[in-house]
Nucleic acid binder design. Structure first.
Lengths: 211, 211, 211, 211
DNA sequence: AATGAATGAGCGTTCATTCAT
DNA sequence: AATGAATGAACGCTCATTCAT
């Protein structure tokens, strides 16, 4: 009908149309997330994505202009979820241990919540392992590096090769996350403790004779 | 970028007649390695591969039954190169430090040699990072796990969660390798030292209060 | 280029509510005329048409059942404008010269008025020239033939091959019209004089020894 | 086998492969000509074209890179056939009458030969009449204008508005050609005589009072 | 009556793969 | 064994049209 008297900038209660639109958008994003994770970006077709939603092929293009755009939207969404969480957690850290533990925990918990996607992730063919490697997660890890470097200046973190250190942190987080998800009982805290202890011990060793 | 077997000084009229079957097979494998690394598996077409060899499209199928098969052959080749090296290096290790250092060093050196491919690996679009994640490398890391588990039984390695430990080792190796390759001066030994010190220190920390 | 019915000085918030059904119909017809002329029938999409009206895509189908139907309506409209004019002009003619001159003049003036469309008609790509070749204009020229044939019987027009003569008249009209529109100063009377002189002279030549 | 000893630049006798390639190319061109003529460029799909050849859809792209390219090839072919013929015919003309007659005759004969296509041209739907309006034919008529202008300077042709004159010639040719093709007995000479007499008479009329 | 999202057939094009030469 | 044209399924995407609101 659209004969609302109210100004269009304040659509007080969402109409049914808006609801289904939002639901469709989400359905496409979810399906895309799944399929990208299962098949990888290159091997995923738009038909694969819409096929999972039950929508018609053309409908995809009412929401996204291309496969690329849906990928970007997905990345943005992921970033929106995880980056602020990681950033905040680090800014609160009083000690190196807290810094590491809370970072790992936040990541492992995020991954656990996204479990659904991660478990589908293991492909049948076993070709190329997929990786939560969106630009935004990458940007998140860039932030990590900045924070680590800052902490080094402040003396909170021993002065070691910061790029290698961050690479190691990221590698540990990625691979341990996958390992964690294969377990019958997923315990993000436990994994975070393991990773923290490993890195903490390793860093003090690196700090001393450095080599 | 063309990986031709023949001498580059006379490429034009060089007939393919004198190429042996093995040379063709190798040419295809090399081209495939290049293109997979540049574009990723899904976005690579068989045309991209044969295009770089100068062979005809049909010829591809005299050597491989499908794009999938050439990928597997490639992985086998990679495994053939790196797995025995890693295995041997570990079997010689007398101490945990040696075990770790030589393993990391072997991997980082392998990666350095394959540099050409790894640097191209960073895709322009920057979509999804490609990863040396072939089944064979994976199998290699399974072997690693076996060896680590064995060493734990022997008392060479402190008893910690072996799956998490191996995941961490693999993650550190993968990510540090990428970081290493971005450096103006690539130093596999230095990277191996860093990784070894990190893990060694971390493991002793893990071994003590265990958590 | 937008053919809106409303006054251009307040286009933004002008509701469509006050547009009468007839105004919408006209808006669609105008937009369709524009776009058909610019892109040709085949390359025009209904979206192109409704896009220019500011109406919703579904609204199109309240007025026309298909792209084809709007084209036909357009043709009818064109015929409505030009056919009676031509017919009347010819019925008044007292001499052959008057007959020809007034016919040409009516056509060239009609074309001049529709100038806007005709100039856009020359497509960028330059593929296939579009032509005011609607069924109605064709029907109009059928009427011309009837009138010419009648005039021949009456002795007003020399007896020559009437089909070829009419084809020639039509061809001259079409092509000269296009030429005329490329000129900085469009002069329908001048063009009509040229065409009339040409045909008049030609006909008397044809009438005499016929060859 | 392709183990010919001879140099590849002199493939003395066409192999079967080359023959079918050429045949396919021709089949596509013929089909494209037909369909473009029947449906118009915009409404023609590549599938329409290949559908008439019996070839597979992909095969189209072994021969032409796009719909556009096949259109251009078609135009080039048409030009190759008709333009030199027209040019030569005009250069031989000693008088204005010869000039006109031979030009019209060449065109009408060309059209007669291409009859097959021209008859299909009349579309069922009757939408938009198609027209032998390829860029090359147009270019051919540009040449005509140059020649007419030159002849005017030489005094062979009375000095009248050259653009209108040429437009008239072209229009007469186009429309009379279509008329001619509807006749049971197609007589290009007869049509050329009619057109020549018409124009010749018209021009001398135009030349006298100049307007 | 108007809207605009949903539909799915169809478009131009690419691709892995086959097969006659 | 090598070739490269032929194949037809599949791709990303557009479109005329429908229909719930």
């Amino acid at each position: 009908m659209k004969s609302r008297a109210g100004p269009p900038e304040a659509p007080a209660s969402k109409g049914k149309r808006e609801q289904t639109k939002e639901a469709n958008r989400q359905a496409i994003l979810n399906a895309a997330h799944e399929v990208f994770t299962e098949l990888g970006y290159g091997e995923t077709s738009v038909r694969d994505i819409i096929g999972r939603t039950g929508l018609a092929s053309g409908t995809f293009y009412n929401y996204f202009r291309s496969k690329e755009e849906v990928f970007e939207a997905l990345s943005d969404a992921a970033a929106l979820k995880i980056r602020p969480r990681l950033k905040e957690v680090r800014s609160r850290a009083r000690t190196l241990e807290e810094f590491l533990f809370e970072t790992f925990r936040a990541y492992f918990e995020y991954v656990s919540e996204d479990h659904q996607a991660f478990t589908l992730m293991r492909r049948n063919a076993g070709h190329i392992r997929v990786r939560m490697d969106t630009p935004e997660i990458m940007a998140g890890f860039d932030e990590l590096k900045d924070d680590v470097a800052k902490a080094m200046v402040d003396g909170l973190v021993p002065k070691v090769d910061v790029d290698y250190l961050c690479a190691a942190l990221i590698g540990i987080a990625f691979e341990m996350a996958e390992q964690m998800l294969t377990r019958p009982k997923i315990d993000a805290r436990e994994a975070a403790h393991f990773a923290t202890a490993l890195v903490l011990g390793g860093m003090s060793a690196l700090a001393k004779p450095a080599r």
